[in-house]
Lab assay of single mutants.
Amino acid sequence: KELVLVLYDYQEKSPRELTVKKGDILTLLNSTNKDWWKIEVNGRQGFVPAAYLKKL
C-alpha cells in the first residue's frame, strides 16, 4: 500500500471527494490523474486534489 501525507485541509465539494485534515496519513488508491488522487479515509473512497497530498 502506498501512503500519502495531507499537506493542507481540504473540504469536500462533491460526493466524489473526501474531506481531509493537514497531517493525516492516508492510503493512496490511484494517482494516475495528475490533478486528482483517489484515497481512502475511514473506509470511504474518494478524490482529493493532488496538490494537497505528498507521497510517503
Rank of each mutant, 00 (worst) to 15 (best):
Y8C: 07
L26N: 04
I25L: 10
E40Q: 10
L3C: 06
D24C: 05
S31R: 08
G46Y: 04
L7C: 05
W37R: 00
G46C: 04
L5S: 04
T19R: 06
S14F: 10
G46M: 08
G23Y: 04
E17Y: 05
K54Y: 08
L29Y: 05
N42Y: 11
Y10T: 01
K54H: 15
G46D: 02
P15F: 11
F47A: 03
Y8V: 10
K54R: 11
K22W: 03
L3G: 03
E12D: 09
K55H: 11
Y8W: 13
S31T: 08
G46E: 03
P49S: 02
E17S: 06
K22F: 05
L53W: 01
V41E: 10
V6P: 00
Y52H: 12
S31A: 14
L26G: 14
F47D: 04
G23K: 02
S31K: 07
T32R: 10
K21T: 11
K54E: 14
N30Q: 10
I39W: 00
Q11G: 08
A50V: 08
W37C: 03
S31F: 08
Y8I: 11
T32L: 11
K21A: 11
K34H: 15
E40V: 09
Q11A: 15
L26Q: 05
P15L: 10
K54A: 11
Y10A: 01
E40N: 04
S31I: 07
K22T: 08
K38R: 14
K55D: 04
E12M: 09
P49H: 03
P49E: 02
W37P: 01
V41L: 14
I25S: 02
I39E: 00
E17I: 03
D9P: 06
Y10H: 03
L18A: 13
K21E: 07
L5D: 01
L56D: 02
N42K: 12
Q11C: 07
W37A: 02
G43S: 08
S14C: 05
V41N: 13
K13H: 10
Y52L: 15
V48D: 01
Y52P: 01
R44G: 05
T32K: 13
G23W: 05
L18N: 03
S14E: 10
V6F: 00
R16Q: 15
K34F: 08
K1C: 06
K55E: 08
G46K: 02
E12L: 12
K13C: 08
P15G: 09
Y10C: 01
L28W: 02
S31N: 09
A51T: 10
A50C: 06
K38C: 08
Y52K: 05
F47Y: 15
S31E: 15
T32V: 11
D9V: 02
K34I: 11
S14A: 10
D9G: 06
S31P: 06
K21S: 12
K1H: 15
K54S: 14
V6C: 07
I39R: 00
A51W: 15
K34P: 13
G43E: 09
Q45K: 10
P15M: 08
I39S: 03
K55Y: 12
L56V: 11
K54I: 15
K22V: 08
V6D: 00
W37M: 02
V48A: 05
L29I: 14
G46A: 06
T19Y: 05
V6W: 01
K22N: 05
K54W: 10
E17F: 05
L56F: 11
K13M: 12
E12S: 15
Q45I: 11
